[in-house]
Computed example of a mutant assay.
Amino acid sequence: MNQSFLNRKLTQILGILLGTGIALLILRGLEILTFIPGGVILLLLLGAIALGIFSYFQRRLWRF
């Protein structure tokens, strides 16, 4: 697998998770989506942060 392909996919998944988490958080705050538990939104945001950290270290440290 090409290094730049992996970086692009990780960045795309990071954007999707972060965008979805923020959108759900805003919609829940406006009381439109009140049935979604806060834990689900927290897991989405934590997953995005973890993926961002992984993507950063993969780009900076794992240069084969």
Rank of each mutant, 00 (worst) to 15 (best):
S4H: 14
R63S: 05
T20L: 12
G19Q: 01
A23C: 09
L43Q: 08
I36N: 03
I16C: 01
N2L: 10
M1N: 10
S55N: 13
E31C: 04
R63Y: 03
I32L: 14
R28Y: 03
A48V: 07
L45V: 04
V40N: 05
N2K: 14
F5N: 13
I53G: 04
G38S: 09
A48Q: 07
L61I: 11
F57D: 02
F54T: 11
Q58K: 09
R8F: 15
G19H: 02
L25T: 07
R8T: 14
T34R: 13
A50P: 01
S55Y: 06
F64A: 14
F64H: 12
G29H: 06
G19C: 02
L17C: 00
R59E: 09
T20G: 02
R59V: 02
L25E: 12
I49R: 02
I32Y: 08
V40S: 14
I53Y: 11
F57L: 13
L18H: 02
Q3M: 12
R60K: 08
I13A: 08
L43T: 13
N7M: 13
R60C: 00
F5M: 14
A48F: 06
R59I: 04
K9H: 04
G15A: 11
N7Q: 15
I26S: 03
Y56W: 02
N2H: 10
F64T: 08
T34H: 08
G47M: 01
L27W: 11
P37T: 08
K9P: 00
L51S: 09
L14Y: 15
G47P: 00
L42Y: 09
M1G: 14
I16R: 01
I49P: 00
I22W: 05
L46S: 08
Q3E: 12
Q12N: 06
A48S: 12
L42A: 15
G38D: 09
F64M: 09
W62N: 10
W62E: 08
L17H: 00
F5D: 14
L42T: 15
L51H: 08
P37S: 07
R59T: 13
F64P: 15
G19R: 04
Q12V: 03
I13M: 05
L17F: 04
F64Y: 13
F57W: 09
L18G: 01
I41T: 13
G15I: 11
I16W: 07
L18M: 05
G29N: 15
L45W: 02
T34D: 13
E31F: 11
F35N: 07
L61Q: 06
L14H: 15
T34C: 04
R8Y: 14
T11F: 13
F35C: 00
I32M: 07
L24C: 05
L42I: 11
N7D: 14
I49M: 06
L17T: 01
I49E: 04
R60G: 00
G39S: 12
T20K: 01
T34N: 12
F57E: 05
I41F: 10
G29W: 06
L10P: 02
I26V: 10
L10Q: 08
R63H: 05
G39E: 11
F54Y: 15
I32Q: 09
